[in-house]
């Protein structure tokens, strides 16, 4: 631009762009130098980045890829490496956990910390969908924090349940039992079911009709005590719940108990041995056992 074409605004002393719209001109205010130089530096940086790092995407006919850049950087490789590194770091612990008995794990503070932390993560990934992130359970999905266990609460029992599942028919060693549908299979009359419902409520210390419960006691002895025991305290070898305690998996109101007896409840839990390795299952067993309800073998024998 030659100097005679320069159009300087009288008021501000700044050059204009030379464009004019209805007498309004645009000032050509220069950018601050620090800004310009920073901008130039970023341009140089970008050029260098293009050369060094993967930058230009392309479709190679089957999948999207990008130019590698001179250092051939790949974030997937970085992640894979980090995962590998972490696994290598944990390997001695994982091996020790697989080898050790549960009593050894519980006695070893370091193994215990690793197992608990790993179990906590595995629980959230695999178990929380049904049992909740805090293992607090939902209707039909047991709370794992409490001390009421359907199939036993020793750490070995818990390990067996996680490994083989409950009523998971593909697994030969799964825990299996079947409560009959007393109503829908016409084993009992509706009146009998109503009476036994009252008796179950009496067992559980809930409000009930004493008269109906007395009638129900006979029915209970004939039909239910085989699994739930004569005193209603259940049988862990058959997964028959204790009916005398404060914990009700499906609910403790009259309608729910009636429905349970009428249709029966046969919940299913998958066997995890095909999806998880032994170390992870052992960590899960340690985690669930440590949630507060875990039963020591001596306690279990005493019951």
């Amino acid at each position: 631009m030659s100097s005679e074409h320069k159009d300087v605004d009288q008021h501000s002393g700044t050059e204009t762009t030379g464009h004019e719209w209805d007498g309004i001109k645009e000032l050509n205010t220069p950018l601050p130098k620090w800004w310009l130089y920073t901008f130039y530096v970023t341009v140089v940086w970008a050029l260098g980045y293009f050369i060094v790092f993967p930058a230009i995407p392309y479709f190679d006919g089957s999948k999207w890829d990008a130019t590698g850049g001179v250092i051939n950087y790949d974030q997937r490789a970085v992640v894979a490496e980090a995962v590998e590194e972490n696994e290598a770091r944990l390997k001695p612990y994982t091996e020790a956990i697989v080898k050790a008995s549960f009593q050894e794990i519980l006695a070893d503070q370091e193994l215990m910390d690793v197992a608990y932390a790993g179990g906590s993560i595995a629980f959230k990934e695999n178990c929380a969908g049904c049992h909740g992130t805090g293992a607090q359970g939902f209707v039909a999905f047991p709370n794992l924090n409490d001390d009421d266990w359907l199939w036993g609460g020793t750490i070995e029992d818990i390990h067996q349940t996680i490994t083989h599942g409950i009523r998971w028919e593909q697994d030969y060693d799964t825990r299996y039992s079947q409560m009959p549908s007393f109503g829908s299979d016409e084993i009992l009359e509706k009146e009998d079911i109503k009476d036994v419902t009252q008796y179950v409520m009496q067992l559980g210390g809930l409000d009930h009709s004493a008269e109906a419960a007395a009638r129900g006691a006979t029915v209970f002895e004939e039909q239910c005590s085989v699994c739930h025991a004569a005193d209603g305290k259940g049988d862990k070898t058959q997964g028959a719940p204790n009916l005398t305690d404060a914990i009700w998996l499906f609910g403790s109101d009259r309608e729910t108990i009636y429905e349970t007896i009428y249709y029966a409840r046969n919940s299913v839990m998958p066997a995890w041995k095909e999806r998880l390795d032994e170390a992870t299952i052992k960590k899960l067993a340690v985690y669930v056992y440590s949630l507060g309800g875990g039963v020591e073998p001596s306690d279990a024998a005493a019951r």
Partner: peptide, 18 residues
């Protein structure tokens, strides 16, 4: 205090906090 669950009902009806 544990917040998830905030408390646990035990078999004998007592309440436990972690």
């Amino acid at each position: 205090a544990d917040r998830n669950p905030a408390f646990v009902t035990l078999a004998d009806g007592s309440i436990r906090n972690g």
